Computed example of a mutant assay.
Amino acid sequence: MSAIAKENHSEHQTSIADNVIATQRENLAISTKGRGFGPQSPRDLNSLVGTNPINFSPAPAYTEMNLCNIHFHKNAEHSGGEFTTYAGNGNGQGVTSGYQYSGKLTKAELMTVDHAVCSSEHGALISGDTIEVHYVYSSAQVSPGPTLGACLNEAINNPQLRVETQVFVLVNDAKALDFSTLTALDIKNGLHQALNMLSNSGEAIQYLGSTTGPSYNQVGSLFQVSWSVHPKVAKVNIDTVGNWCEGNVFKEDHAHGVRNLVTNPALLSPMK
């Protein structure tokens, strides 16, 4: 167990200086200025400020679209609700940055499991970690599959995209939510759907933005995305997340890194 714990925590040893993040944000501003990029994501959900002039129609409700992908990021990419504790600058490439659950967990919930969970070159998930799950929906006639590519097809190169977003905290508790249940799929009313997304995690905050991920720390995302981010964090059994990583239709086996929070008003949509 000590070896696993060492592996799990190894990624926490590197954290870049504030000025590196500032430089990345400056490069993002330079690379997008005057080029017509639409509003970007992620953002501080508590701030309504945004001056990006690009407007597009919000995507339909997810119940009127096809689920095309599910993936998650270690730590929340957004800040708001019950996930406002800054994890730190990380390595500058999205690892160990982002935002964490701001509530308290019991010692039992935080007990270390005796096996690696969703391990990658940056370590594995541990009890107490926060993840932001993205249920990605497309207006195109597509089926669930790996990456954003599953949301596009040859018939429509510019489908409307919606991301239903739920933040979870991983706990060592067999009675907590089961991730396999939360990601169960089937066809409903002729559309691919995630059947058991939470409905008790607060009214979703809606805004217009883009795709995310650390590859966009210094360049703009080209995609237009309607976001729905629920403010309350739910507890999920860490072992069920590990089981999902061992095999799913999306070929997801680890947590993705996070994009820097977008703070430049010129790259943010106005929120009501």
Rank of each mutant, 00 (worst) to 15 (best):
L67R: 05
T212R: 05
S215N: 13
L125A: 10
L191T: 02
G94C: 02
A5S: 14
R25W: 00
T263H: 00
C151V: 08
N264L: 13
T263E: 13
G128W: 06
K235N: 05
I54P: 00
A234C: 07
A150H: 10
C151H: 06
Q193P: 03
D18V: 05
T51L: 06
E109H: 08
F83M: 04
V219E: 02
Q224G: 00
N264T: 09
A140M: 05
A184N: 12
A176W: 07
H134Q: 14
A255V: 04
I205S: 07
T32H: 04
Y62Q: 04
L182T: 09
V95M: 02
E64R: 09
R43D: 07
Y99A: 06
A3E: 11
V249K: 15
D173L: 12
P39H: 01
Q13V: 03
C245W: 14
V249A: 15
I156N: 10
Y135G: 03
W227I: 00
G149W: 08
H256D: 15
S41K: 04
R35H: 07
A59V: 01
S120Y: 10
E121V: 15
L105P: 13
T212S: 11
L28N: 01
F56M: 06
L208E: 14
G90E: 02
N46G: 10
G149K: 14
P39T: 02
I70T: 12
Q166N: 10
G36Q: 03
S15D: 04
A3M: 09
E246N: 14
G34K: 01
K232S: 09
H73M: 03
V163G: 01
G149Q: 12
Q206H: 15
I21V: 12
P214Y: 10
C118K: 08
K235G: 03
I54A: 02
S199K: 15
V236M: 07
T212C: 13
G81M: 08
A255C: 06
L125F: 13
G80S: 07
W244V: 04
R43F: 06
Q141W: 00
G257Y: 07
A266S: 02
T96Q: 12
Q40T: 05
D129T: 02
K107H: 11
Q93L: 07
L152S: 13
A5K: 15
Q13C: 01
G103R: 13
L185P: 11
T63V: 07
Q166D: 10
N157R: 09
E77F: 00
V233M: 04
L148S: 13
L152W: 13
E203Y: 05
V136L: 13
G123P: 09
R43A: 04
M1V: 10
T63Y: 07
L268F: 00
Q224A: 12
Q13I: 04
L152Q: 11
V233S: 05
K104P: 04
G36C: 14
F168V: 05
V133G: 03
